[in-house]
Amino acid sequence: MIVAQRKKIPEIFNVIQEHKSVLVLGCGTCVTVCLAGGEREVSIISSALRIASRKAGKKIKVNEFTIERQCDNVFIEGAAEEIKKNDAVLSLGCGAGVQAIAERYPDTPVYAGLDTAFLGILESRGVWTEKCMQCGTCVLSDFGGICPITRCAKHMLNGPCGGSREDRCEIRADQPCAWQLIYKRLKNIDQLDKIAKEHPIKDWSKSIDGGSRTIIREDHRI
């Protein structure tokens, strides 16, 4: 899931303050699960913005609405009426959601209320961790399901670096050494021979470095 966190209220207020009415638009998918941009967060952030607006002596109308998914045109249509009623949209979706809304409403200013952080999982209640950086060529099968690209601070395909101390990464002591995890995991599943395999230089052109990516499935196109 995509993990995001809310921007600070002054930062959001700063971008919306010139408008007379703003629609705070939530998204019911990833950002709801990571407690950043769902219906509840829409309510809290809207309240905070109304307070900030009044405090600044302005009368900005802050309206609330949440759709199931901001990155999907079918669901965006459901917000069409609400969007038209307002001067601007503050999207509490991820970066994809904000852009999807902006593309669909070329005449309406669309602002981001969240900082989209990473692709990760819910580790425990209130804790999310990054697991994938979408490099475009997945190597998880070679590493027992633990990603050295994302979880090793040096993105090493041929590790370990030798700098870890007591299972901890030398760059950040609060993180486990990914290569230590890979070693343990491969040993557990009896595939330790894989750790000796040499990996050639990674093709980063499949990653974001080659510009934003598009996937076309001809078999599904209409």
Binding site: I9, I44, L49, I51, A52, K55
Partner: peptide, 11 residues
Amino acid sequence: AIRDILQESGI
């Protein structure tokens, strides 16, 4: 957590 948001909002 809400005390922080209030402070940010100016309360």
